[in-house]
Design a protein around this nucleic acid. Structure first.
Lengths: 217, 217
DNA sequence: CACGTTGCTGAGAGCCCGCTGAGAGCCCGC
DNA sequence: GCGGGCTCTCAGCGGGCTCTCAGCAACGTG
């Protein structure tokens, strides 16, 4: 367990409490040092303060995720504005706790985090030069922004979250359209057409008789 | 997205807000109904209220996890006692939000949750340097992709799932073609021919008078 | 070697699948 | 209310897929 926290009292309290729960704890007191440890240490998770000397918690996690390091991160902050919290999560944090917090809650959230493990989970979805940012609800092709309607966007996001897999029209109807809707699968074809017109012909591949696939041809 | 919430106003607000973000939303108003949907629906995540008629949120999630259903769950509760929160998380919830909450935060936490849930890719079928990936509906020979039609693919998959065994033409007709179809066994021969042309002569072996075999000669 | 049986293959007809343009309903902002 | 954009339906079409058929090759047996 890695704790990155500049306030000495808080850091020591966390270290002691976590140690009592059986965690082996390393502590870093500033951003750069924390980043170094996160890069090279083999930790199960990191507890990360937002306000840090040298490198903020936001910056630290962004760097880490850009390096494809998916270490589970629980963010700590004195700010409790809703947008602070949303920003932290959209930077790639997995959970967010505002000070003051209960140690019992911290432990429970840590356990939930460890349960999920550390699979690949970038904050943006990318396939080739096509990038979809769920937080910003924005799509770019080769750096150029692409304007999509709600339905088009939902369709593309669903396909990109399953990049490399073939997704059937029925599955798309169930998940992108309302489950109860018994529309004809033709709607899907129509929207695939719209998408291709906007993001490029080559993004969505048709697998005749099976469905559609993006990426990993 | 599955929403389990008995309070009608809250349920409707969630449904509308999530729909505006492009989620397809199902709503259940009590515990048993929510459990049923969670069991049989194909959802990306569930938003679960704690106080529910019939079956509490805690109970619902415990049942679900006992059935090895790892659907990401975000719990909602009016209680904000630290132990309530810890209990919820230790029951198997992945995140916990107390009412009243900000919708912006809910969305951010939902995104973080969806990011985490990386479904593991099921296994691929391999015989020699021939690889078939059922999820991607894709076939490779020595790393090079092979384009197959629906029928060809279904035929190859059936044979590879029974690698080493001899499969008769009648069995293939029954399983790869429509069971009711009373076509001549010649169709099978024709399609074996197509397959051999595309993936290589040596993949499918003819056992005269008995049928065909893939691999393990 | 002759013959029957079994499997292979090229050609072609029909059909189903997916794509697309047009347009109607609907909701939103002005 | 009115205009514009979004969503969805519908019908037509083009092409690829599926399957049939007939002739031929391979195999095994007498």
């Amino acid at each position: 367990m890695l704790v990155v926290e500049d306030e000495a009292r808080m850091a020591r309290a966390l270290q002691r409490g976590l140690a009592a729960e059986g965690f082996a704890v390393d502590v870093a007191f500033d951003g750069p040092h924390g980043l170094e440890l996160a890069r090279h240490g083999e930790y199960d998770a990191m507890i990360l303060d937002v306000m840090l000397p040298g490198l903020s918690g936001y910056q630290l996690i962004r760097v880490l995720r850009a390096e494809h390091n998916w270490l589970p991160v629980l963010m700590l902050s004195a700010k409790d504005g809703e947008y602070d919290q949303a920003d932290g999560l959209d930077c790639g944090a997995d959970d967010y706790l505002t000070k003051p917090f209960s140690f019992v809650v911290l432990l429970a959230r840590l356990r939930a985090l460890l349960r999920r493990g550390a699979p690949e989970r970038p904050t943006v979805l990318a396939v080739g030069d096509l990038v979809l940012d769920p937080a910003a609800r924005q799509v770019q092709r080769g750096g150029a922004p692409v304007i999509l309607t709600t339905r088009e966007y939902a369709l593309l996001e669903y396909l990109m979250r399953r990049a490399g897999r073939v997704v059937s029209k029925v599955e798309l109807l169930d998940h992108v359209w309302d489950a109860g809707a018994d529309s004809a699968p033709n709607v899907v074809e129509v929207y695939i057409g719209y998408l291709r017109r906007k993001v490029g012909r080559d993004v969505v591949e048709t697998v005749r008789g099976a469905g559609y696939r993006v990426g990993q041809a």
